[in-house]
Nucleic acid binder design. Sequence first.
DNA 1: TAAGTTTTGTTGCAATTGCAACAGATTTTT
DNA 2: AAAAATCTGTTGCAATTGCAACAAAACTTA
Lengths: 209, 209
Amino acid sequence: MYSDFNIQEFTQQLQNSCAKAQTKKFVKNETITTYIKNRNQICILKDGLADLVRYDINGNKTIVETLKADDVFGEIFFPVKTNNELFVVAREKCEVVYFIYDDILQKCTRGCKFHEILNSNLLKLILNRTISQNIRIELLTKRTIREKLQSYFASLTKGGLSRSFKIPLSYTDLADYLSVDRSAMMRELKSLQEEGFITKDGSKITLKY
Amino acid sequence: MYSDFNIQEFTQQLQNSCAKAQTKKFVKNETITTYIKNRNQICILKDGLADLVRYDINGNKTIVETLKADDVFGEIFFPVKTNNELFVVAREKCEVVYFIYDDILQKCTRGCKFHEILNSNLLKLILNRTISQNIRIELLTKRTIREKLQSYFASLTKGGLSRSFKIPLSYTDLADYLSVDRSAMMRELKSLQEEGFITKDGSKITLKY
DNA sequence: TAAGTTTTGTTGCAATTGCAACAGATTTTT
DNA sequence: AAAAATCTGTTGCAATTGCAACAAAACTTA
């Protein structure tokens, strides 16, 4: 994982460069952006938590991504028109930096001294993003709710160090994130407890054996 | 979509740079790479088709990604140890360019004149990759087999232009790609025909209505 | 071309999952 | 502090999906 990355520094670089980055603040439940046009906008969550959310025709909500500080998002990653609208919603108070991709890439092939550093930082950022996407894909390809839960729990144990953790989402949201029915998920959680695989106390889960 | 990308040119740049890129050829069904170590290796499929495949403990096969010319893959995108091994297998004759990420990023911050172009090309490549990952995630978050099929078909119509297309996978592989049971998928395909949504002739599908 | 292998198409049955609905608990808003 | 909204936990029932199994078709390899 390429975590040798300083978002503060990067933001400053962006602002000093030709890219004209802007910063905005959002309160809880505020919509940060909607994916409708293809503006080639790249956003970086400087601080806070947010969700990329989709509603389908049947009203099913899916949390497509959960975003934390330093995560990138933006329309540029979804240039194909989908039938469903995508929203990024602040889960808590957020600070977002945004800029236009073309300003970084097309413009200033010479001249701007920050250009190269920007590019390589952006690369790191997007690389980290594809890694979390892969973890998400792994989870979603699991066939059963049980396997999805176990896969999700595994991702919270930070490499097996902590067998006890607090779920950072409500159970309602977790179901939307695993893309399964909430009641079916609750049932499965109950089975996991009854069979002795986990202990559950509110949002605190402990993995047994 | 950033398709203004010439793989031949890029390969040449790689070979001229300090990155020491190598090219290898593979025959059908040959294993191109296995994800076990964290070698920070990046591979580019120069020519041919390949699959990124995972087998879980129960022997279920999942096609995690289908790769075509110009697609990137490699361990660098899966640095977290998963319980399941991942393989990249040639679906047909393939040509693969591979190099080590650190050679591009850490080394030669000055001096190598190709460095900047490389970086920006790599960025484009990875950006295209995250786009296809998003499409994949959208497909996998669909709740029913029917919706998954429709979502997959939609991605084959190239923006709604062609209502008729040939499925580039066997139905067995398609089920592994949609992450569903094959017989259940076949049943659903039959229903889609009976209800008049599609016409099916071997691997050729035509969308009606 | 014959034998072997893989894929397709199909079905019955069991298990899993989704849907709808509701009461109680918790949180947020007024 | 009361009212409103959201979340949790639960259940019965229906629909969907997975599993196992098999024959026929298509494809590969010897």
